[in-house]
């Protein structure tokens, strides 16, 4: 006996419509609610280290999780309009520099997970997209992701989030272009060029309710994966916020310590999966005198240069190309770090 239950979508749609105003109300009144909880309910002494740490935590955790849910929902819907297959079609036959720009921009909106890096790489190479353009995509896609951007927006403000996106794009475009000019096709594993992929299955025909459903699935999947890191990150950040003395970080992550930029990049490479946890900590460190350029370089290295992705890419790239990739992207991040330490 075959039974299939199809849930009524209408009921859910009403709940969704109610959720949106509830979101805005909660977000708007988060600060007074936090103060009420900390000062009146817990009756913690005002201004004490512990009080300020608790206040920071109680305010920032729901704020970041609220922002994450809404933005991931919207991005999840937007992403249903994009696919690697369409991106590939858009990139076919583009000249090198235009291709790099387009690939980096599409890298932001195309759904991508590092576990799909190999089929994506093979699919791009097979349809004749230049190596450098493919790399622009592979750099932008993980580096400029919605989780990082939302956390930067929530904890640093829109200016830093924008700086991150723009410099990230700049790095993806130029690094891809440089790799393209170096003509490193010889360092791609030989079997890659022998791959013959079958016909691509037809795209799904999607009506809007399905796109909304995909948005909700994205929220469930991504928030389900990162909420714990966000909480831990903010808890550490709250501790730093309340207990670490002002200007404590200035001596080793400040502007005057030039070596701090390359050092942060090196430390950032093996710290991969915790982007959601690291941004809140960095935001607290900046408050204590860490320089913006150094912090930006650190976060970009954590998010953009990830060890597991390198290991995955090793299947299709020979080691010299992996090191060139790390070197070129690392240099880009280094320049960004120095530049922002100089400006701000």
């Amino acid at each position: 006996m075959i039974t299939v239950s199809i849930k009524p979508l209408n009921k859910r749609r009403y709940i969704l419509l109610l959720l949106l105003p509830a979101w805005f109300l909660l977000y708007h009144y988060l600060q007074p609610l936090t103060d009420l909880l900390v000062d009146r309910v817990f009756k913690l002494p005002r201004g004490a280290h512990l009080t300020e740490s608790v206040r920071f935590f109680i305010y920032e955790v729901p704020k970041v999780l609220l922002l994450l849910s809404l933005i991931i929902f919207c991005v999840g819907i937007i992403r249903t309009y994009f696919s690697p297959e369409r991106t590939r079609k858009a990139l076919e036959g583009k000249s090198l520099f235009t291709g790099n720009i387009l690939a980096s921009l599409l890298g932001i909106v195309t759904p991508f997970c590092s576990c799909s890096a190999i089929p994506l790489f093979l699919g791009f190479v097979e349809s004749g997209i230049p190596l450098g353009v493919t790399f622009s995509f592979l750099i932008a896609a993980p580096m400029i992701n919605e989780v990082a951007v939302v956390l930067l927006f929530g904890l640093f403000g829109w200016k830093t989030a924008l700086i991150y996106v723009v410099t990230g794009l700049f790095i993806a475009i130029t690094a891809g272009w440089v790799i393209g000019r170096l003509h490193l096709e010889k360092w791609v594993e030989d079997w890659v060029y022998r791959i013959q992929s079958g016909n691509h299955p037809e795209d799904e025909v999607m009506r809007f309710p399905i796109r909304i459903k995909r948005g909700l699935e994205a929220v469930k999947e991504i928030v389900g994966k990162v909420w714990l890191y966000v909480m831990i990150g903010i808890a550490v950040g709250a501790g730093v916020h309340g207990f670490v003395p002002q200007d404590f970080m200035a001596s080793f992550m400040g502007k005057s310590a030039w070596y701090s930029v390359p050092l942060s990049i090196l430390i950032g490479i093996p710290l991969y999966s915790n982007a959601a946890g690291i941004i809140p900590v960095v935001s607290a460190l900046i408050e204590k005198g860490a320089a913006l350029g150094t912090s930006l370089a650190f976060m970009m290295s954590v998010i953009g240069l990830s060890l597991p992705e390198m290991i995955i890419l090793r299947k299709v790239l020979k080691l010299p190309l992996i090191f060139t990739f790390i070197g070129v992207v690392g240099t880009g991040i280094l320049l960004v770090g120095f530049l922002f330490n100089m400006i701000f």
Partner: peptide, 8 residues
């Protein structure tokens, strides 16, 4: 790859 997909 022979199934023509770019996402697993």
């Amino acid at each position: 790859m022979s199934y023509g997909i770019m996402r697993t």
